Computed example of a mutant assay.
Amino acid sequence: MPADPMPADPQRVVDPGIRDWDFPRGIASVALMTAYAGEHGVPVARMLAGTGLSEPALHDPDAQIDARIELAVIRNLVRELPGVPALGVEVGRRYRITTFGIFGFACVSSPTLGEAIAFALRYLDLSFTFCLPVAEWSDGEFVAWVHDEAVPADVRQFLVERDVTAMNQVMSDLLGAPLPLVRAEFRFPEPAYPDRIQEMTGVAPRFGRPHNLFALDPAVLDQPLPQANEHTWAMCLAQCRELVDRRRARTGIAARVRELLVPGGADGFCAPPGIDTVAGDLNLSTRTLRRHLDAAGTSYRALLDEVRRALAEEMLTATPLSVSDVAIRLGYAESSTFIYAFKRWTGNTPAAYRRDRAALR
């Protein structure tokens, strides 16, 4: 189901749908970097050293790896090719729409660049990024803030170069023309190859700045994409969501909390319990539960959102409950708060979601 348009409202900020870079990912990025290294004479075995991966795994489109395995490959690449100038930029150029599988096809078939960006942020864990972008519309500018603070320092500059170049390359592919940036800034000091970075950005980059960012005229976001197709887009979105749901399957303490959040009222629907109640059911203090969930890479709020979203979709699809009734049963004091949350989860309003699901039956 298509997401709502992303208007260039003043001061609008859109965060990515993930908290950090430590999410499971496909093998395509590792395969791409290994192939690049091979072109420079680095054997596959040296690129995969310390990862537990075998060469046949690079050709398995369904293979899924931990982010830290890709990080090990990145460290191998940087160690093996220290003399390649602008290594991150050169590798980043290799990331094309086709590298991202169904995620890429969803972007290609989006109506506009703004819609593609909205989708990409919501499903960022289908990408290979380590730097997390945050989108902002402000003062007549669209700015992508590219956060690298949590990226390991030994590969931080490489990954900023790689990820920013890959983002630029993919958006240029979507438009069918170079992305028209108006400025580009980086936190790292000016390197020995500023011309390589300027060639990538199309503008004179500034280095040693407080933040990594690139900016463009927000009018570009409304341009129709040349391969936009509403039917293909809807189909790709559904497949992406199923893939994300599988990858986000919870285990350990998170699974136990999620089970406790799933209600069991007389009609199967009632407001999920609060964190204090959940902690008590697990014989933990609230503070200890928060600490365990943080160590598992999630939070009570994130798990509550997952459960509420699943229940909301089920109630909107399988019951005649009004949107207001659904909101009440999910523990929201006001339906407007529920509508805002549902739109953040799915990119659509509850009413529009119900219509779309009814049309498919």
Rank of each mutant, 00 (worst) to 15 (best):
M200P: 00
L48P: 03
A49L: 08
L221K: 00
A37E: 06
T51K: 01
L179I: 12
G252F: 04
S29L: 12
L124D: 05
V13M: 11
R355D: 15
N168H: 11
D4V: 02
S336W: 09
P24K: 00
T251P: 00
N212W: 12
F188W: 10
I117M: 12
F105C: 03
F338H: 00
L213K: 04
D62I: 04
L261Y: 06
G347T: 06
L260N: 07
L81Q: 03
N168W: 09
A3D: 07
E55A: 15
R308S: 05
T232A: 14
G297K: 02
M1T: 05
L330S: 02
L126K: 01
A341W: 05
P226F: 08
D60K: 03
A234P: 00
G114E: 07
A184V: 09
V73D: 04
E115F: 08
L81H: 02
L284N: 00
Y193N: 11
D173C: 07
A219S: 09
E90L: 07
D356R: 15
A153L: 14
A359T: 04
D66I: 08
T201C: 15
A266K: 03
G297T: 08
R247C: 07
R291E: 11
Y340P: 00
V89D: 03
T288E: 11
A45S: 15
R258K: 07
M200G: 01
T232E: 13
Y332Q: 01
V278Q: 01
E149C: 06
P205Q: 10
R209H: 13
P111Q: 08
S127I: 04
R361N: 10
A118F: 08
